[in-house]
Every structure is written in C-alpha cells, then in structure tokens.
Design a protein around this nucleic acid. Structure first.
Length: 587
RNA sequence: GCGGUCGUAGUCUAGCUUGGCUAGGACUUCGGCCUCCCACGCCGACGACCCGGGUUCAAAUCCCGGCGACCGCACCA
C-alpha cells in the first residue's frame, strides 16, 4: 500500500467497488492470489451474462449465427496447423550480468538496423550469431547475453499419461470452429454465407498481467467466424447499416505518425476501400452499436487499423475496436480481422480433410480439354518397372505442352524420360463441370467479454452527492428491482415481501432489503446499479399503491401494485420510460 | 522477469523509527431502538498484523526467504 495521498483514479475506485460489492476479485486470495486470474461474484457473473446476452441479441439472431461450445484443450496439431505454435512466442535473451530480459529481435532491429521482416525469419541460433556478430551488449549495463530462448505464450500440457501427447490451452476460440467446419457447414444446410460463434474461456500465459480485467491469463473470449464466398462478398444487411458512422484510424495515418480519426459512414468506408470486406464493415458497425448499448458513447470509441507487421499472422486486414478509458487511454475491446481462407487452408493441409465447399454453376460449363492417355502396351516394354511411374507423370503433365512439344520436335522430355508420339494418345475430351470447389473466406469479430464488463463499469460509474452510482443501461443491470418496506414494522415488511415474491414470479431479478434506513438502502442499491426501487409505505396499506424510485434521477412515481408487472416489463424492454410508470410522488 | 515503493478486519487507516498489544479509530456489515423517503441518531455485535523461517524472555515492530500489489522497464502474436 502506498503512502502517497494521490486521489485514486477511476480504475482503482471501480476495482475497489467491484471487490467490495462482489462483482469480481483476484482469484486464490487465501493462497496469496495469482495475477491474471479472476473470480466473478454473482453480481459480476450476472452482469457478464447480461452483456453476452446483449451481444447475442445483436449478432446472433438476425444473422442466423450458430452458437457452439468446443473444448479448451486441443492436441498440439491444431495449433501447429493454425500457426500459433510458430507465431505465439517471442525470442528473448537475458543479460548475464543484470538479468534483464529483452526481445532478441528488437535488439537486432534497434542496434543492427535489421528490419523486422528479416529478424522474423531468424532461428534462435541465427539470432545468437547475429547478436554476436554485431557485438550487441545489454543496453542497461553493457553485459553480454546468454542463449536466446523462446517464451511461448500458450499454456502447454499433456493429454493422457503419455508425455509425448502434447496439448495446448487454446489462446482463442476460433480454431474450435475451424476444425469443425465440415460438420458445421452441413448443419448450415450447405449454404454460404453463415456464421458460427462461441463464447468460452481462452488461455494466454501473459508475462505480466496486471491490469485487472483488461489482461487476464484466463479470460472469456467471444469469437464469431463468418464464412462467405469471396466471389459473392456482398452483405445482405448492408442497407441497414450503410449510414452508420465509424470512427477510423487508418494504417496510412499511423505510418505518418498520426492517430487522426476519420469519421465515415459504412458506405463511404467501403467505397474508399478503407475497409476491404463488406461483412467486416457491417460487423464493425454492429460492434460499435453493442458498445453504445453497454453505455460507451460513440465518441469514446474508435477502430484502429493494424499495420502489416502488427497484424496477427492470419489476417489480411484488421481493425481493433478501442474504448477510451481514463487510466490507460485507448484499450482494445474487439478485433475485426479478415482471415481470408488462411485457417481452413492450413487445417486442410495439415489434416488432409477437404475443407472446400461445392458451388454449383447456374448452367454446367462444358469445356473441351486436351487429355493425354498413356498407352501402357507401348510404355511397358520401353520403361519396364518404371512404366507405371511414367504413366502417372504423364497424366499429370500439361497436355497442351506435351502436344506442342511433340508437334515441334517429335518428342517430349518428361523429366529424364523421352516420350515419343506412339507412346501416347492425344484426345480431345468434353468435360462437363457442374460447379467448383473452393475454400470460403472468413471475417472474424472477436470480443473480450471481461473487457466489456470493465468498460461497462467504467462508463456506468458516476458520483452524485458523494455517493457512487453505477448507471448501467437498464437491460444489463445485474439486479433489476429492489423492494423495500419503508419501515420494518406495522405489517409493511409482510406487504413488501408479497410484492417481492410477485415480481420474482414475473421473472424479474429482484432483491428484498429491509436492513437500515430507507436512505441507506437506496444508496446500497445505487452502488450496484439497481435501476428501480419499489417502496411499500403506509399509503400502500390503504390504497395498494407503492412508490417506484429511479436510480439515476432519484425521482419517484406512485403506481398500483397490480399494474407493476405490465409496467415493469415495458420499462425493461425500453417500451416505456420512467415517467410512464406512475404519477409523480414527492417523498 | 528486473528495479523502486509497499503489504494491519469488507474498506480507509493508527501503531513500526526506539520490540512490552489484551493491536486503537472511522466507514461498511449484522442485531436492536426511533411513522425512518435518500449512507440521520442512539445501544450492541462480528471482524485484521500477507505467508514461512530466524533473533529475543517477548516480534505488527528487527533480520532472511517467499507470495502479492502499485509505479517504471520489458511484454501484450
């Protein structure tokens, strides 16, 4: 604990509030705590669920997205194929004198002026040699460096009792979707475009995670893989979103050293090809809307384009959606990557499974093709045991090239084999193609669930009369309604409990509180962001009306108990405002 | 992982220099009183020296190690 009398910043206050009221806290506290792991209390868990629900409402239903759940542990092959084993690591060297660690490639870039594209290709051995060749010493103390070593940011484990069966904890949920592509495509009734989403835990062994919910070693990721035909890249929802504005920081600005924000409509962004894929632009517009719905104003959001060397290995173009927070400035909340056919192609290559889809032409295309037919009766006697091999090579050879060569010089050199005209028959074959096979392209919006929780808290937090209030949008508040007897006697609590039970049966998330003064209970409720408070007072006993209190304005209205279910359902579905809930009441 | 600062109830903190503690206070929480609508007041209760080792008759206090936090460096495909 520091002695400084600095006033704590918003992040500190929110994390303290979160811990005190049970939104979330660092896990394993009784053993001293481990950074990068967090436990959500029931308020936090509920808030997170509500945020995820909100995302589902926006992304899943309208687009017919299929939601799945796949394992966290995968066999090593999956992440070898995906490229993570190769890319999800950093070469580090340690100074033998002061023990400081540096990125080996960064040292070469800085002190030997070797560019990034080249340092990336170097092996550990080559890195070591390059460091020695350029006589690079520790920039801190001038000491020499030890052997370069990779730091792998994936969690590694073994599957079953055999240590050679290496498994990895997934650093993203996307691969769980790609590896199941064939089955999922079938479930999507073999039609493009379609999307698959999953919400689940992911693991990254961060070197030093210390920013609360912003950087965790185990976190909840939401990956949505949207598959489409690159020849039909049009988005059928574009009309609905083309006039939405996006605030972009383009790579070209960043190259000029500027973080200038250009504000354009979705339509303009596509016309000026700031964004390459229509679907990606629409997902970005949806992502912006999601964060607005979570309470983050549009002007506190931006999309920043990644420079080529900043991009993940799979991405052709990618934008990070960032939210401005007081403590750290702009922080990523979602990534929007155009992954092309990279992942499916890799898995196709590594697994041998065919990841292509079949697309039928409107009319079958008939083409005439020149085909070489090897005549085994001739090849056999000439090439003996090599005849089969020659025949195979022939059928794979370019027929037109063979034909041309024979016409020109009377023979064709197939590698070291001399092919004479009589060995083959050149035929003209009519081929009817009904369609073609191709690997779909993918755009991926990917959200950090925990960060959305953090940002929802940050933007919900305000102070009124020295009291903390979490002004969550009403549909993500963990608790919807508080029910309070004005006093704890004369039958008020019995009546309040009736109201409480009635609202529970109506499906609301309700809390009953009779402890302490009414003002204290309102304050407690404000602090966890309960939008409405219902108070049973002496008038209730006469005319069965109660007061309803608004968290944000502290205003109150009066309504009949029997009208509550209808009014409240409307309120929480944004079909009614607070003023519509009853007659104004002065306490 | 390195360097600096630091670790006392749910929270904020006093005590540490110079060892003597039955560890003090405030807020919160819980129980009670008060016709009580914005953390009112009054009575009462629960609750802590980060962990381990050492020095000592005696350790919250001194020493060593570990763990954790904050800030900076590095890292964040």
């Amino acid at each position: 604990m520091s002695n400084e009398t600095k006033t704590p910043d918003k992040f500190t206050i929110i994390n303290e509030l979160a811990r005190r009221r049970g939104f979330f806290w660092q896990s394993y506290e009784i053993y001293g705590g481990v950074s990068g792991f967090v436990t959500y209390g029931f308020l936090g868990a509920k808030l997170k669920q509500n945020i995820e629900k909100k995302l589902r409402e926006l992304f899943v239903n309208k687009l017919g997205i299929l939601e799945i759940e796949s394992p966290v542990i995968s066999p090593s092959k999956v992440f070898k194929a995906s490229g993570h084993v190769d890319h999800f690591k950093e070469p580090m060297v340690e100074c033998s004198k002061c023990k400081k660690r540096f990125r080996a490639d960064h040292l070469l870039q800085e002190f030997a002026k070797i560019n990034e594209a080249e340092t990336e290709k170097l092996s550990l051995k080559e890195l070591k040699e390059a460091i020695e060749k350029h006589k690079i010493r520790c920039p801190e103390c001038g000491g020499t460096f030890g052997e370069p070593k990779y730091f792998l940011t994936m969690f590694k484990t073994t599957i079953g009792p055999y240590s050679e069966a290496v498994g990895y904890g997934r650093p993203e949920a996307a691969q769980g979707i790609f590896v199941e592509f064939r089955r999922l495509y079938e479930m999507a009734r073999e039609k493009l475009p379609f999307g698959v989403m999953q919400i689940g835990h992911a693991l990254r062994n961060e070197i030093s995670p210390r920013q609360g919910l912003i950087r965790l070693r185990e976190f909840t990721i939401i990956d949505l893989e949207f598959f489409f035909d690159p020849e039909e890249p049009n988005c059928f929802l574009l009309k609905d979103f083309e006039n939405e504005t996006l605030r972009l920081v383009l790579a070209e600005s960043k190259l000029r050293g500027s973080e200038e924000i250009v504000e354009v409509t979705v339509k303009e962004a596509l016309e000026k090809s700031y964004i390459k894929a229509e679907w990606q632009a629409v997902f970005m517009a949806l992502a912006k809307k999601l964060l607005v719905d979570l309470g983050v104003p549009a002007e506190k959001q931006r999309f920043i384009e990644k420079l080529p060397w900043e991009r993940a290995h799979y991405a052709l173009q990618s934008f990070d959606q960032e939210v401005y927070v007081e403590r750290w400035g702009w922080v990523e909340v979602s990534g929007h990557a155009y992954r092309t056919d990279y992942d499916l192609k890799q898995h196709m290559q590594f697994s041998g499974a065919d990841m292509r889809v079949f697309k039928e032409y409107e009319k079958p295309v008939e083409t005439e093709q020149t085909v070489i037919k090897p005549l085994m009766a001739k090849l056999g006697p000439v090439f003996k045991e090599e005849a089969a091999k020659v025949a195979e090579m022939l059928s794979e050879a370019d027929a037109e090239e063979v034909e041309a060569s024979i016409k020109k010089s009377g023979y064709y050199m197939l590698g070291k084999y001399k092919i004479l005209p009589e060995y083959i028959e050149v035929m003209c074959q009519k081929v009817k193609e009904r369609g073609k096979r191709f690997i779909p392209h993918v755009v991926e919006p990917s959200f950090g669930s925990d960060r959305m929780v953090q940002f929802a808290l940050e933007y919900a937090y305000r102070v009124k009369d020295d009291r903390a209030i979490l002004s969550f949008p009403r549909d993500i508040a963990p608790i919807q309604i508080g029910v309070y007897p004005l006093m704890n006697k004369n039958g008020l609590s019995e009546k309040a409990l009736q109201v409480y039970k009635m609202l529970l049966n109506e499906g609301f998330t309700v809390e009953y509180d009779e402890a302490g003064s009414i003002g204290r209970r309102y304050a407690r409720a404000d602090e966890v962001g309960i939008p409405l408070g219902i108070t049973v007072d002496y008038e209730t006993l006469n005319d069965t009306t109660v007061t309803i209190r608004d968290r944000d304005t502290w205003k109150q209205v009066r309504s009949r108990i029997e009208d509550l279910p209808k009014l409240l359902h409307e309120y929480f579905h944004w079909k009614a405002d607070f003023e519509d809930l009853g007659k104004p009441f002065e306490g």
